[in-house]
Design a protein around this nucleic acid. Sequence first.
DNA 1: AACCACCCATGACGTTTGTCATGCCGCCCC
DNA 2: GGGGCGGCATGACAAACGTCATGGGTGGTT
Lengths: 197, 197
Amino acid sequence: MIRVLVADDQDLVRGGLAALLSLEDDIEVVAEVGRGDQVEAAVAGHRPDVVLLDIEMPGMSGLEVAERLRGQRVVIVTTFGRPGYLARALEAGVSGFVVKDAPVAELTAAVRRVMAGETVIDPKLAVSALTVGPSPLTQRETEVLRAAAGGATVADIARRLFLTEGTVRNYLSSAIGKTGARNRAEAVRVADSRGWL
Amino acid sequence: MIRVLVADDQDLVRGGLAALLSLEDDIEVVAEVGRGDQVEAAVAGHRPDVVLLDIEMPGMSGLEVAERLRGQRVVIVTTFGRPGYLARALEAGVSGFVVKDAPVAELTAAVRRVMAGETVIDPKLAVSALTVGPSPLTQRETEVLRAAAGGATVADIARRLFLTEGTVRNYLSSAIGKTGARNRAEAVRVADSRGWL
DNA sequence: AACCACCCATGACGTTTGTCATGCCGCCCC
DNA sequence: GGGGCGGCATGACAAACGTCATGGGTGGTT
């Protein structure tokens, strides 16, 4: 039996994944958690063979959790096939990356193959990650752009990051240039859709 | 046996929900669909007692589908507890509204109660819908704001909606005022989070 | 008939944004 | 030790944005 832990913040989805996996004869769900910051403890307590992680979770993001679980067999299961997410996941040493609109058989197959020591990545995502490439944004540009999401004004951002308004505008301008956008809102959309934020 | 149809665009989630419901002795999943515009045909073909609809789906939104399924027992199952969604769902005559981070027992309970002729609404959502109130935005304001999401410029919006740039600015200004925002990006965020877009 | 809400437009005004040139600092690398 | 890159800042300018006053049209209500 492959012992699996499922981490996802939405009860129905988490329960659904668990139910789905439990239907398999060789898979057993030994624990479910709904917050990123509870995964480590649950892993220590239940010693699963494979850990399934959603990315968007309260407490701690699935990517951060994966970092801390180096050595464990981890599969990211996420709604968003953002190339940047895949890149960060691989850096975190995960063994698998599956999107939620993949067929069910793909998930169970991924669990088994990861259990066998293989690394499983959604093929479409792999290409887009390679074509899109890594984020061209510097640390600061990323922070500023992230702060700009949600409609903060330049003054707001400057206050929050302890920068001059002019400096903020410079970073925004540079981020807009690098993303090929025409204003900050577009830049946010582009960067976010690629997982650069 | 309560015959249920499940409509959700994400394979894993849809399959999970189906697996979850199938665990119940008195519930049977008779069909699964992944696109909004395929629901009607599936309903005609399988004659389910209860139809479970996600909102975000390709082809047609779950809310639109619900409109067309008046008379059927419909339960909306969605990630986003936006007050505006609930309002539109009720106008469409749905019998139930459940958010995906509700406990699993709530979903099965909802299916049974809807089957019994009751109307089931997430209680927390009901209050927030009442406190937030209906959208104060006019038709045009809504369109313009929706077009502004994603970073379109005033000129872009004017072209797309066949309006003068000045008119677009007026609608935006008015929408900004009504949402209590300080610029268009914030207005988009506010309106979207309440389900007004 | 008077009223009101919404739609559409114009013009004018002040503010915010986005861009560019320029400068200084620290760091890393050939 | 001289580049190159990133962080931070300033100042200046043009473009885009947000606001306001004003006016005309339609349609529905009282």
